[in-house]
Design a protein around this nucleic acid. Sequence first.
DNA 1: GCATGAAAAGTACGCTCGTGCTATTTTTCT
DNA 2: AGAAAAATAGCACGAGCGTACTTTTCATGC
Lengths: 208, 208
Amino acid sequence: MEKLSKGEQTRAAILDAGVRVASRLGLEGLTIGSLAEATELSKSGLFAHFGSREDLQLAVLERGREKFADVVIKPALKQPRGVARLRAMFENWLHWTESAELPGGCLMLGAAVEFDDQPGPLRDAVARLQREWMDSLARTVRGAVEEGELRAGTDIEQLVFECFGIALVAHHHRRLFRDPIAHQRALAAHEHLIARHRPSTAQHLAVR
Amino acid sequence: MEKLSKGEQTRAAILDAGVRVASRLGLEGLTIGSLAEATELSKSGLFAHFGSREDLQLAVLERGREKFADVVIKPALKQPRGVARLRAMFENWLHWTESAELPGGCLMLGAAVEFDDQPGPLRDAVARLQREWMDSLARTVRGAVEEGELRAGTDIEQLVFECFGIALVAHHHRRLFRDPIAHQRALAAHEHLIARHRPSTAQHLAVR
DNA sequence: GCATGAAAAGTACGCTCGTGCTATTTTTCT
DNA sequence: AGAAAAATAGCACGAGCGTACTTTTCATGC
């Protein structure tokens, strides 16, 4: 572990606090004043680490991405390629959105809603990060197909799409309704989704 | 149609504009100044219609609920009880989130993310409205079960949960990725969901 | 251990916010 | 038409925002 200079470690502490604040109040609610208070720095002292508020928001987003990779993706890659890894990805994702470190829920999902129709670097960054995550999921699904654990004709994008939906609704229900069984419902839905794409059983492709 | 007093019709115009603004900027982004500008009123003139900003936000939310009922629920009730009505509900919902009147997407979904961990009247209102909508969906599904179009043992809450997820991801993808086929994917996912619960075909209940 | 540059604080500015108060205009009712 | 009431505008306030400048404190390398 490289030794961090004073400035670098302060910056890291700011970003960690920033991720927590942004989780609860959104990236829009992440103000320099409140973050300065949370980190026990002066407004100007904090501001000096970033050229602008937008830069701060982008840095927080990037810090979130790193954490996401550490908590969700990396551990899942230890699972063998196939459905096992897909399950790990999904379950880690669910845990991530419920993590105590994210008191306000996944900041990517929050940011997606905040910026989805406000053009600019933030929107671009959010879209890029989410796209990357979808690509990771797609690769995982493709792995399961290649292992023969999912049907060969599987519409990978569609599967990822639906998988994403389950995570979104779990997040939504757990946070808005404080629904304690949202997690369980999400797992069940995910298993149904997987079962639908298993190669062994005959499927009724009832699409209009 | 009752004749509206001057004040009432101004108030109605404010709320309609408020729904549009809140759709794009969120209820947090709905400021009195910007809304006054949009309605060509003075700040104080607009403010006089509501005792506080929070009251304004609540009124906008309620106006949104009325529109939702008009556009999504009422037309669907014209369909016969059963899967047809469920399909209508879902498709109207999708159209609602894509409506030109909601340039920033469904304001309920936006509000849910904004307020899900900020206790207060707004959070309560959002949670109540979403709960009511879920109850409507549940009643519709129950109707389809009673008509024999869905399996008797159907876990209604689970079905609604998954249905909600599909709408969420369609909204998310369409807005963040400008994905033109999100709508189509959502319809396909919904049909799969229905197919899974049809009574005629044997199902593999692969839940862990 | 001290010089030097980095890090943090201090201070100030212009802006927008929500909201109260008062004045003025416009509806509404007799 | 004129009086009463409702609707809207004008204005001021204190607070918080992002950001620019200057000054002080601190960490680091010789």
